[in-house]
Design a binder for these strands. Structure first.
Lengths: 192, 192
DNA sequence: GTCTATAGCGCGATAGAC
DNA sequence: GTCTATCGCGCTATAGAC
């Protein structure tokens, strides 16, 4: 099963690189040095760079949405669920050094330079996340925990944009502390 | 003054490219084709790519902050000022095709790939914008227009992250309509 | 100021030995 | 599966003619 291990190592390193420097600045050369194989060997697992990025996005999508669904399925209050959702993002920001952004946030910034099958993955990820945020907000509205004004779906879109943006801004200015302050301010607004 | 015109043309085209595809994907070749000169001639005005990007950021910083200061100086309500501030962003999103992001948002996403004198410009731009948003929010708090809970400076940081993120997300999903809906939802939250 | 020409590098990708 | 070797491209940047 050495081949599976190598494939996973490549994906892990590639994801780390994309989260730091973006898709365009990530190269087979960088990956090969970090993994300890030659860059030609990477083409054995991922013939083209688009194949690699697609695999990256699919793996992250499955991983992330499964975590989110796990949070939603728990019998917790809506506030706890929303806080946990925001923490999913923060965990990435804090892991390793503080210079990693959300994978889909980075890819979204470079969206125009991507080919079509990749673009659709990004829009789908955004839509799915907003839908799940909407579920949490609806629960909070019904239970009376959340008293924010306006449409829950509009609020879900706002929160998702806020978290993606908060990630990128925090990297330049304030770091995890600033991100946490923003989430705290958000919680106050949602409770209303 | 033909030289000044050419220099401005280069900056205009380069800015448009960075807002669409990012710093790393923007090339002297792309610029030369759009301006109608050879790429070697661009080096006459901007010896290195870092020189070009620095000039780009400085010009945009001056232009944008002057607009913001103009908005703040007017004898308008805080709500009008905040709406105008958000519209500054939206104007960029709508200009040309809908696939442009905020210049500093794009550069922020690629922050890790930038050299140091450029990084500082980005952090300064973020800080200056949050400070000005804080001014507007304070005015609204004092006049009684804004009833949001929490610290105005934390709220300013939240709004700035939201607008930068809203930009990037809207490009992938929903466009100017989605961005406008987010701003509308924000206004409701700020009024409290 | 703008041009042609070119250097030098890193990139994604492929062929073929082992 | 992993390697060496190499191709062809696009990039930033420079030298020097006009």
């Amino acid at each position: 099963m050495n081949s599976i291990d190598t494939r996973t190592q490549i994906l892990d390193i590639a994801q780390d690189l994309v989260q730091r420097v973006g898709v365009n600045a990530m190269s087979y050369q960088d990956i090969s040095e970090a993994v300890g194989i030659r860059k030609a060997s990477i083409h054995y697992y991922f013939p083209s760079k688009d194949d690699l990025v697609a695999a990256l996005l699919d793996r992250y999508n499955d991983y992330f949405l499964r975590l989110v669904d796990g949070i939603i399925a728990q019998p917790d209050s809506a506030e706890v669920k929303l806080r946990r959702y925001c923490s999913l993002f923060e965990a990435t920001l804090s892991s390793g050094n503080g210079d990693k952004a959300c994978l889909y946030g980075m890819v979204g910034a470079e969206l125009v330079t991507l080919k079509h099958p990749l673009v659709e993955r990004v829009t789908t990820f955004y839509r799915d996340n907003e839908a799940r945020l909407g579920q949490i907000l609806n629960q909070g509205r019904e239970s009376g925990e959340f008293g924010f004004v306006g449409d829950p779906q509009a609020m879900a879109a706002l929160i998702f944009s806020l978290l993606e943006g908060g990630f990128l801004v925090a990297r330049a200015h304030g770091g995890a502390t600033q991100y946490r302050a923003i989430v705290e301010q958000l919680m106050q607004l949602v409770k209303g």
